[in-house]
Design a protein around this nucleic acid. Structure first.
Lengths: 244, 244
DNA sequence: TAGTGGTCTAGACCACAGC
DNA sequence: CTGTGGTCTAGACCACTAG
């Protein structure tokens, strides 16, 4: 096989992938359509079948096509169900907006985990660090945060001063985690939140709850409350900017 | 090379991937650690280097490792920023909860797109279909929906009866889309929403806005309002249930 | 400059589902 | 049964960069 004179071009696999993706995204191939069999594509591109396979495999993983033995590969039906959500660290969010970030620590204490299912899940009889804080952007209240940290999972957190670096940012940098679950909802501000955020009681707020694990060990649980409009979450489904 | 007697086991590539992933997720390998070079892994598993490459490639795509020429492959620093968000169709959500689904169409009209940037983006001088509806679960208000559909992009929508099948479900089944953007926030109910959802004015609601495209053509814009607590969005980061 | 990942080849055999 | 994807091999050369 002749070696192509590639000069800074994407790999052949990538070009095949992009070509097929373009056909699908442009609508030239509609959901349910069968795409050419792999050996045909290999002939088209003058390459080995494996090269084509790598491309179609990637498309299948991305959910754009479905590959079926004996039947062929087909353009998949789009599904709206999954999108990528960006959930950045609050300090990073604020500074990314070009605003000054401050945190007020409202309370900070150690205690034993209670017997609520919530806290048993987190620390199962161990000690907890419980921290309330207020995040500020340019001095104005940005988010109220209530956090529990399992000292069983992160004993060194007991000695850290979170009055400058918020606990979330510290944890992000010091405790590798492997799994996270987020829950997003809305709630009316209770008295505590209303006071902290300087809004009226009952006013609508966006709530983001996050649990974080390292393997089986539950690291932290946090509930962040944003005044309506202060913070929107954005999720996307579609072409990735990279590799195009 | 000896062909292994595989009996319904995952592929070798998959097993290598799982092994490495396990090492990372368990914490045996920490972020920043270098993982064995590919030819070593190939020797370990008694396979060709390409087989190992396929596994490490997949891990790199999943963001678990970073591969650097000449330097080696390293366990990546976890990033909390992206998580997969499930945003199902409302009808599907309700029926999945085992509840009866109904939709009340509150209004339905055609008009020209106005000159707001919003609507210019959607239909650029063309006709719009504007639909308000109320989704119900077991008869109780579940979500208020305000939707605009570009008749330029979806002319056949003009003749569809959305009083039984909600527009969202119809579009999902009839108009393949390729890109979507979601925005999630909180808002206090205005009079219209409060009445539709049978809640108090000002009560906190979760808002989900979604824009959908097919290639460059903007298909629809929709704003769905859920009473606080009625509906939470869940996003995950971590091991996929599949292929393990 | 040596060693790493990055990519590709030209085969091969298999399992499986559609015909 | 046949053709499809599923997987793997045993090489090869290249590009890049850390040392």
């Amino acid at each position: 096989m002749i070696t192509k004179a590639r000069v800074n071009t994407p790999s052949l696999t990538q070009r095949i992938r992009n070509d097929l993706e373009e056909k699908i995204r442009s609508g030239a191939w509609r959901p349910g359509d069968r795409i050419p069999v792999e050996h045909e594509l290999a002939a088209t591109y003058g390459c080995a079948r494996m090269t084509v396979t790598r491309a179609t495999e990637a498309l299948a993983e991305a959910g754009l096509i479905v590959r079926r033995k004996r039947a062929g590969s087909f353009v998949a039906e789009p599904r709206i169900e999954s999108a990528v959500l960006d959930i950045p660290d609050i300090r990073a969010t604020v500074t990314a907006q070009g605003k000054r970030y401050d945190v007020d620590q409202l309370s900070h204490r150690q205690r034993m985990a209670s017997e609520t299912s919530e806290e048993r899940l987190l620390a199962a009889g161990g000690r907890l660090l419980e921290i309330d804080c207020l995040h500020r952007a340019d001095g104005r209240p940005f988010a109220f945060e209530h956090r529990l940290i399992s000292l069983k999972a992160v004993p060194e957190a007991a000695d850290v001063d979170f009055s400058e670096t918020p606990a979330g940012s510290w944890l992000l940098g010091h405790v590798p985690w492997t799994e996270a679950e987020h829950r997003i909802g809305a709630v009316g501000a209770d008295d505590k939140i209303a006071e902290a955020l300087a809004i009226e009681r009952g006013e609508a707020c966006l709530v983001l709850e996050r649990r974080t694990w390292r393997g089986d060990a539950h690291i932290t649980w946090v509930r962040q409350v944003f005044p309506a409009g202060a913070y929107d979450l954005v999720a996307r489904f579609g072409p990735k900017p990279e590799t195009r």
